[in-house]
């Protein structure tokens, strides 16, 4: 464990909690892409199946359970409890265009052709594009609530911090995983446009609005 990975995990946890609290407190999921949240629930489900097979540490197990639990709770709030506030007209990204290629790639490029490893690879590839429906929805509505931008910022920063974690681990532990690194770079690049808007607008107290 190193400082980048710990702050990355905490940033990820913060993002998940921010979103869950935003929906729960405001009793509304307006502006939130349910499709992205379903993809995140799928990412955690396929990545954390090893909860059933191996124990690494209390931290590892508890964080995984929290992530999976919050992901499904968020999906439940969006599609069941606060379904009436779900903005389906703007959440129209064709997720099959993400899941199918990612699924195919996981079969072609992986470290080991075993079920758990292919599912893990699938989750790594899927996570790198899972935010696209949410970013697409914001580009369609032309704006985002400030709390949603904080959620996205924490979510984007988490994987950027993981990039530094991988540099650290390569240098100090000789550890590196090319699949996770390449997917992590792609994932972070997808947030760059949003980071620019967040830093130049939201941090200056303005609302995040895109030229629709």
């Amino acid at each position: 464990m190193n400082v980048f990975r710990l702050t990355g995990d905490l940033s990820h946890l913060a993002a998940i909690i921010i979103l869950l609290l935003k929906i729960w407190k405001s009793r509304s999921c307006a502006g939130i892409s349910g499709k992205s949240q379903i993809l995140f629930a799928l990412v955690f489900t396929t990545r954390y199946l090893d909860l059933l097979t191996s124990f690494i540490s209390l931290y590892n197990t508890s964080m995984k359970i929290i992530y999976v639990g919050c992901a499904y709770a968020t999906v439940y709030l969006i599609y069941a409890k606060f379904r009436a506030t779900y903005d389906g007209n703007h959440d129209t990204f064709r997720v099959e265009f993400l899941v199918v290629p990612v699924g195919g790639l996981a079969f072609l490029v992986n470290h080991d052709f075993s079920p758990l490893e292919i599912l893990w690879t699938f989750s790594i590839y899927l996570e790198s594009v899972a935010i696209l429906p949410q970013l697409f929805m914001i580009s369609k509505t032309g704006e985002a609530e400030t709390i949603t931008t904080h959620y996205l910022f924490c979510l984007g920063v988490y994987r950027a911090l993981y990039l530094f974690n991988w540099i650290w681990r390569f240098y100090f532990e000789g550890f590196f995983d090319m699949i996770a690194i390449v997917a992590g770079v792609v994932q972070t690049i997808l947030y760059c446009d949003f980071f620019y808007l967040y830093i130049t607008k939201v941090l200056k107290g303005k609302k995040l609005s895109l030229p629709a």
Binding site: R5, D9, Y162, N165
Partner: peptide
């Protein structure tokens, strides 16, 4: 291509 131990990252 990956060097390292088990999957201990989240």
């Amino acid at each position: 291509c990956s060097i390292g131990g088990e999957k201990d990252e989240l």
